[in-house]
Design a protein around this nucleic acid. Structure first.
Lengths: 229, 229
DNA sequence: ACAATTCTGACGCAAATTTGACATATGACA
DNA sequence: TGTCATATGTCAAATTTGCGTCAGAATTGT
């Protein structure tokens, strides 16, 4: 459910299968393709959390895939790890320039790649790496599916959980009700805008504790934001 | 019964016998073969818990055996320890690249290998190392195949045993019904998701004792987790 | 004070979980 | 081999929990 989704673009089938097994064993949700064009389609459909991209693949080159991913608004921020057989400084630089977040030089051990993936995810989206995320006195443990405030467990429903998780991942930023509907409820949800208010209220009630101040700020005619202490 | 099953692939007969003796003495269930092809067959039939693999063996090479083991879904997750006479970094990397979990360089003392085996087993599946595992007031003895709570034996069925064993090995973590099906029932089991609920209920009934609190947490729309006291 | 916006409590519905029951499968033992 | 006891997977009813909507009350900005 909350397994990080990887997209592996690799045309060495033996390597691809090996990696697929290892990553699935570590709890990732892996899709594989050998083709650059197909990779674009899969990235658009599946919204992966991270892309592992071989430099040399059939069809359009890895670097071109990288560029196109960055150009598309949907996938612009997806972290990318490049696999490259070359060791030249040029390629390395070009890879990072094009927007790759990290690169691994062949030959490499799956363990090393696993470590890099975990590191990048931890940096970009800690919750996906299974790490607890926090904002102010709020702390959310994605593995245990729990939220606590000042060490005390909060009793919280599924929707409120997703809502506060989103807020903690993007603190201080104001989101309109529609943005929240997209992010928390999923795209194209046909839900009344006002419903967000109700869930904000439920969330406020759930995190109210020790009569501490309410960290959720209402921005009139704009939306809501989480203001950590 | 629950002795860890080792598969030793080694063509130096003297060494093989020595190791076999030592490991059996330590309570392992050891099979030996000198041939790579045969090793594949034995691995498929016997489902070993760990494979000790000599780099240089007759027939297909050790590294090839390693690759094939990984490729086969049945044996993809079996930990592998490589034995190698070489010390070059290249081989080391190539061994790990193929998916070995550890390697030992010849010459080595049997004691060292024993330690590595125990370490790998402990890391991968603590229960296989023969150690009792516990979480809160629950205690599971993998050797005796029993579970007790506060010193009292629990009467528990096979499926519930595997279920709670998995939970104790991964406490506090939430698992979806599908993850539990994969982990407890085995890969690709075509079992109804709702069946998990029933076994959770049976497990709850089995571990209910002294009207102690139920340590299994239901996480609505996510799955279940074990919350040790 | 007025209009726009947000908050709040209530309510019916829907979805998810729990529970009891049942038919079948499995294994031990005579 | 047949019998008995236990275990297993599925189903449907019962129950719990959460969700989305509404409308009146309260608040905010001008």
């Amino acid at each position: 459910m909350s397994a990080p989704k990887l997209l592996l673009v690799e045309d060495d089938m033996a390597l691809a299968e090996l990696l697929e097994y290892r990553f699935e064993n570590e709890g990732y949700d892996v899709r594989v393709t050998a083709d650059g064009e197909e990779a674009m389609v899969m990235a658009a459909e599946n919204a992966p959390d991270l892309v592992i991209l071989d430099w040399m693949i059939e069809g359009i080159s890895g670097i071109e895939v990288c560029r196109r991913l960055r150009r598309n608004k949907e996938t612009a921020h997806v972290p990318i790890i490049m696999l490259t057989a070359r060791e030249g400084e040029d390629d390395r630089v070009r890879g990072l320039e094009t927007g790759a977040d990290d690169y691994v030089t062949k030959p490499f051990s799956p363990r090393e790649l696993l470590a890099r993936v975990a590191a990048v995810l931890r940096r970009v989206r800690p919750a996906l790496a299974g790490e607890a995320i926090e904002a102010g006195d709020l702390r959310l443990d994605p593995v245990a599916h729990r939220v606590e405030r000042r060490g005390r467990q909060l009793q919280i429903g599924p929707t409120e959980y997703r809502l506060i998780k989103f807020f903690i991942e993007h603190p201080r930023r104001v989101f309109s009700r529609n943005q929240l509907l997209d992010a928390v409820w999923g795209n194209g949800s046909e839900i009344e805008e006002r419903t967000v208010d109700v869930h904000i209220r439920r969330l406020r009630k759930a995190i109210a504790i020790d009569n501490a101040r309410d960290p959720i700020r209402t921005v009139r005619s704009a939306g809501y934001a989480l203001e950590p202490v």
